[in-house]
Design a binder for these strands. Structure first.
Lengths: 139, 139
DNA sequence: CTTGACCCTGACACTGGTGTCAGGGTTTAT
DNA sequence: ATAAACCCTGACACCAGTGTCAGGGTCAAG
């Protein structure tokens, strides 16, 4: 009945979450995870740590950095997301950033597609003018 | 009439192309640019170097790396792109990569939008169940 | 001869999460 | 007591292009 009854060590947490031992230590250094220590210095994780790590994975997959996650993880672990004031502005700016990136990539895609089409044209026609690297200027 | 008549030094090339001196030296180390050297060790660029740098910029803007560019720059500087065999496969794989990235970002965008919508819902309704971080799972 | 504007090389920093190695302790089972 | 399987910390590498600093030449104008 004492606390730490079914605590686990880092290897087990890694196995349960699919996150490498290396990454778990990194998350700790970033302030996302704060395990107790056994007398021998080994990290001691409560069963709740599994949920915490899953939550961290979820936010990392959204493109948030560990530093950003650190700003609200504590809150979302005990409340619904909607009641953590830090989350919404972060989502907003992240969404804008993602959209900027999509626009940028779309422009590159268009440029590539046009250049490829032009190349195939020229290979068909095979041979009139010379030099032509810079006419489809750029993004 | 001797060669090097209107050659320029690195600072002038940087000014004409808008590329930093630092980057010009980097391009050289990557094998993209091979200026002569004056007796004092200064780099000596022919006027053609301006075009070369513009071409490099163009390909960098397409998302190609200096290493990739090095593989075909020589060819495209003297022929039309269409006649450089290395270019098309590179464009193809780059296009695929870009499209993968766009898909990935689009998924994140959707996930963010859904979470934001859900948060606003919950704030309206304000208050029934508890805990809800992981229901819109992830990308 | 001095000042200032150029030029040279080499090297570290940054981004950010992860792999991996070195060098060393602990625990458990045989 | 020894081997195997864990655990610990600290540090370098990666990607890739750019900024920036240190420490030092070169050259032209005053």
């Amino acid at each position: 009945m004492n606390p730490g009854e079914n605590a686990m060590k880092i290897g087990e947490l890694a196995a349960r979450t699919g996150v490498s031992v290396r990454s778990l230590r990194y998350y700790e250094r970033q302030g996302l995870l704060t395990p107790l220590r056994e007398a021998n210095g080994y990290r001691e994780y409560s069963p709740l740590a599994v949920e915490t790590v899953e939550t961290i994975k979820l936010y990392l997959n959204l493109g948030l950095s560990t530093e950003e996650i650190a700003g609200f993880l504590h809150c979302v672990l005990k409340n619904k997301e909607a009641f953590c004031a830090e989350v919404m502005p972060l989502y907003r700016s992240k969404l804008e950033e993602i959209e900027r990136q999509i626009v940028e990539l779309s422009q590159i895609r268009l440029n590539l597609q046009q250049r490829m089409a032009a190349m195939q044209q020229e290979q068909m026609e095979s041979g009139t003018t010379e030099r032509g690297t810079a006419e489809l200027e750029n993004s």
